[in-house]
Design a binder for these strands. Structure first.
Length: 420
RNA sequence: GUGGCCGUAGCUCAAUGGUAGAGUCCCAGAUUGUGAUUCUGGUUGUUGCGGGUUCGAGUCCCGUCGGUCACCCCA
């Protein structure tokens, strides 16, 4: 009310929302580290030049920037993606690091677009990039990370698939059909819409290039597996072959991709791509005017679509709920049964906290029944009752309602054995 | 930027153009030290906002803001 809502496309994170977000970020970070990637980050605010330089033709992209003039008269923008920042960082200090670079980042991004399912104006994205290695082994390593991230949340081959494609296959095909590079780019944009636009309208767009939808579909259907055989073998060796398939209809929208491109989809096809990426072997050289020439491959994965798919997939949702349930607001609730013992209870609370237990207690005098109810609602495993029996305390295991009694000095030991 | 649908209590939703309601949540209590149920009581509304039609508008019309979905775009 009172107009005190967050801006369109922006989110408040209440405790349960923060817990969910933490679950996603922890999973991303854990899997990336497990794959030998290290974390990097950059500023939320960047100079406009960083984006203007990369997208000479991208007036559309510039129009989606949160852009303004700062108090120092600088033209700046909130970051809409990680790649320009990453490219700048790599170009500046790449000689300080052994190759290949295996970097990942977890960052929030801002795009001024109308929101819809799976798309907001501020979102969080996991980005991973492998730089300085142009091999198929590097391709497989990066895509395996994408698979690993999705599997981490409980998804299986029944839930998602990575579609592999290669722009070089298309460029060779189109060159053989007489398209120059500019025409080929235009055709790629049309291929990107194959399933979304009526065939007749696509045929009309293809006519100037001497092509038809039928011919494109025939090429997609005839996708030569030999070309992908070395890559597919890498997944075979990792036991991940079932998570990938070749699909040349994937071309991705960005102009800077130079070869392999891929997208992750939910098997139900009920939402937009979960993740997408590809090779951009020329970008660093282009941005650094040739001074840094590193091949690179990377992908991004957003929190919004991933969160939606987790909610819609029972196996994944249950896994998340288990994880969140395992981290209650309090493990131990100290019940103060007699206010005369509040000082002793405070000392006990402090010692439990120092010992590493998530501990809570009532700030005000309250009925014992109410205190137990609070303990229950916080998700505590144990209630420790401090009252007349001091220096002994009662320990109640809330789930079983079993009660035990120990000297307060022996509580830490009791909890340690009970916890195992 | 374009279009469809939607906007009523904190939340989920009712109400033929005729007195704005239910459930839930939250708070308090049910003979003073034991939590899931139950019972009782209580708070909460400029019906998103602004105009218009009408004797009368939550309801119909226009605008606006927001939500949602699709187009555009997808880094």
């Amino acid at each position: 009310m009172c107009g005190m809502r967050p801006l369109p496309g922006f989110r408040d994170f209440y405790p349960e929302d923060c817990a969910r977000r933490g679950y996603l970020l922890d999973g991303w970070r854990a899997v990336a580290c497990r794959h030998g990637f290290v974390e990097v980050d950059g500023p939320v605010l960047e100079s406009m030049d960083l984006y203007a330089k990369k997208n000479e033709s991208g007036a559309e992209i510039l129009g989606q920037l949160y852009q303004f003039t700062d108090r120092g008269e600088r033209e700046v923008a909130l970051r809409p993606e990680m790649t320009p920042t990453l490219a700048r960082m790599v170009i500046a200090k790449e000689r300080d690091y052994r190759k290949p670079l295996k970097w990942f980042s977890i960052a929030n991004f801002f795009r001024y677009e109308r929101q819809q399912k799976g798309r907001l104006r501020e979102f969080i994205q996991f980005n991973a990039d492998l730089l300085g290695d142009a091999s198929t082994a590097a391709d497989a390593e990066l895509i395996s990370l994408a698979i690993g991230v999705l599997r981490e949340f409980g998804f299986t081959r029944d839930d998602f698939v990575i579609r592999l494609s290669d722009r070089r296959a298309w460029m060779d095909f189109l060159a053989a059909r007489g398209c120059d590079e500019g025409a080929a780019r235009a055709v790629l944009a049309i291929i990107d819409k194959l399933d979304r636009e009526p065939e007749a309208s696509l045929d009309a767009k293809l006519a100037p290039h001497g092509l038809t939808v039928a011919e494109l579909r025939a090429f997609i259907a005839a996708a030569s597996p030999e070309h992908f055989a070395p890559l597919l073998d890498q997944f075979e060796a990792r036991g991940l072959r079932e998570f990938v398939e070749v699909d040349l209809s994937i071309v991705r929208g960005l102009a800077y991709y130079t070869g392999l491109v891929f997208e992750a989809f939910d098997r139900g096809q009920s939402m937009r791509a979960l993740a997408g990426g590809g090779r951009y072997d020329n970008l660093l050289a282009d941005l650094s005017d040739g001074s840094v020439n590193l091949p690179a491959i990377g992908f991004g994965l957003g929190d919004v679509v991933l969160g939606n798919l987790i909610e819609e997939t029972p196996r994944a949702r249950e896994k998340m709920e288990r994880a969140l349930g395992a981290a209650p607001a309090a493990e131990i609730y100290v019940v103060i049964a007699g206010e005369a013992r509040r000082r002793e209870a405070l000392g006990l609370v402090q010692s439990l906290r120092d010992a590493g237990w998530r501990t809570d207690f009532p700030l005000d005098a309250a009925k014992v029944g109410r205190q137990f109810q609070t303990a229950d609602q916080l998700g505590a495993r144990f209630a420790v009752v401090v009252g007349n029996e001091w220096p002994a305390v009662k320990i109640k295991t809330l789930a079983t309602r079993a009660e035990d009694s120990v000297a307060h000095g022996a509580l830490a030991e009791w909890l340690k054995t009970a916890h195992v």
